[in-house]
């Protein structure tokens, strides 16, 4: 314990801020992917699988074409393709979304493993100097400013993009007609339909947009965060994204805050381990945070519902006492 107090300046220094954001970014993308469909009341459990397919496609295409932009675009298209399979199954054929989602996750794991073997003739890991990563943004003027240099320099392009996308989605959901329709579909589909909104069309659009986002999440994982593809490299980041989405109630900014909390738990954990905190405990932290976050958000939701209910019930209750 004393070792931690001694080294507190090493654990909580400026680099922790970027480390938090760096480890949160893949989860932010995943959470935005889940938020897009959640607004239309579709729980995208397949986020994990969409991401994994995206990671594989990004690395594969970047390797074959030598161009990261094409790699990222291909990843997004592959994500949209997977999402549209889910969309057809769920919207057209009324299949249970969780079942399809889990199926997609397992399928993604198996398909990427198979293709890795067939196309690249390797197992487990695929890394090669010919894979072109997403470049990092370097501001030359920051080189001499120590704090800014540590904080903002050499971010990957997709890390900046994550911030932009959070704001874009926030605007899209709450300030545009499409967003209003999307939320209307999510909250009460029948009412939306009565109002003349094409419910099915909106749902398809949400699923495909979510697929594009999930593909991007995967591309960031394999070309931005690292430069390799590894079997099951998402390692539950998709599920953590879904949890964060719940925490934020599918509101992009709140959702991103939830992700940052995960990132923070992860980064602080990584530093604490060095000073004799048992690794088992530290590795548990992100999951404990997940449970705590979900519990709090569920409680807040419960309280709000209770309050709404009681305000509706109040007049009736009065009537009763009078009667």
């Amino acid at each position: 314990m004393s070792a931690i107090i001694e080294n507190v300046d090493k654990i909580f220094n400026v680099s922790l801020i970027y480390a938090t954001f760096r480890s949160a970014t893949p989860i932010i993308f995943a959470a935005l992917c889940a938020a897009l469909t959640q607004q239309a009341n579709i729980l995208n459990i397949g986020t994990e699988g969409i991401m994994l397919v995206g990671s594989f496609t990004a690395v594969g295409v970047s390797y074959l074409t030598g161009n990261w932009v094409i790699g990222v675009l291909a990843a997004m298209i592959s994500g949209a393709f997977i999402a549209s399979i889910m969309a057809v199954g769920h919207i057209k054929y009324n299949a249970e979304i969780c079942a399809i989602g889990m199926g997609i996750n397992m399928l993604a794991l198996a398909v990427t493993k198979l293709l890795l073997n067939v196309i690249f003739k390797t197992n487990g890991t695929f890394s090669d100097p010919k894979i072109v990563p997403i470049p990092k943004v370097h501001f030359a003027f920051m080189d001499d400013i120590p704090v800014l240099n540590q904080l903002l320099n050499n971010w990957s392009i997709t890390e900046w993009l994550a911030i932009v996308l959070i704001l874009v989605l926030q605007f899209l959901f709450y300030k545009t007609v499409w967003g209003l329709r999307l939320r209307a579909v999510g909250q009460f589909a029948m009412a939306a339909q009565t109002a003349g909104i094409k419910v099915t069309q909106i749902k398809y659009q949400a699923m495909i947009a979510s697929g594009l986002m999930g593909g991007l999440a995967g591309a960031h994982l394999s070309l931005g965060y690292s430069t390799q593809f590894v079997e099951n490299m998402t390692n539950n980041r998709g599920f953590m994204g879904v949890a964060a989405m719940y925490f934020g109630g599918a509101n992009p900014i709140l959702t991103a805050l939830g992700c940052l909390l995960f990132g923070f738990a992860d980064s602080v954990g990584a530093r604490l381990q060095a000073y004799g905190i048992p690794s088992q405990f530290v590795l548990m932290m992100p999951y404990i945070v997940t449970i705590v976050i979900l519990a709090i958000s569920m409680y807040v939701k419960y309280r709000n519902n209770k309050r709404k209910e009681s305000s509706l019930l109040a007049p009736k209750a009065q009537l009763k006492t009078q009667g």
Binding site: A19, L221, Q228, N235, A270, R271, Q273, A274, S279
Partner: peptide
């Protein structure tokens, strides 16, 4: 000596994050 365990044999991203954390700690 800084010591860390990733808790898995199959997550290079976790390994990367732990390693960067150690570099950032000197």
């Amino acid at each position: 000596i800084l010591q860390a365990f990733a808790g898995t044999w199959t997550d290079p991203l976790k390994g990367k994050e732990l390693t960067l954390a150690q570099y950032e700690q000197g």
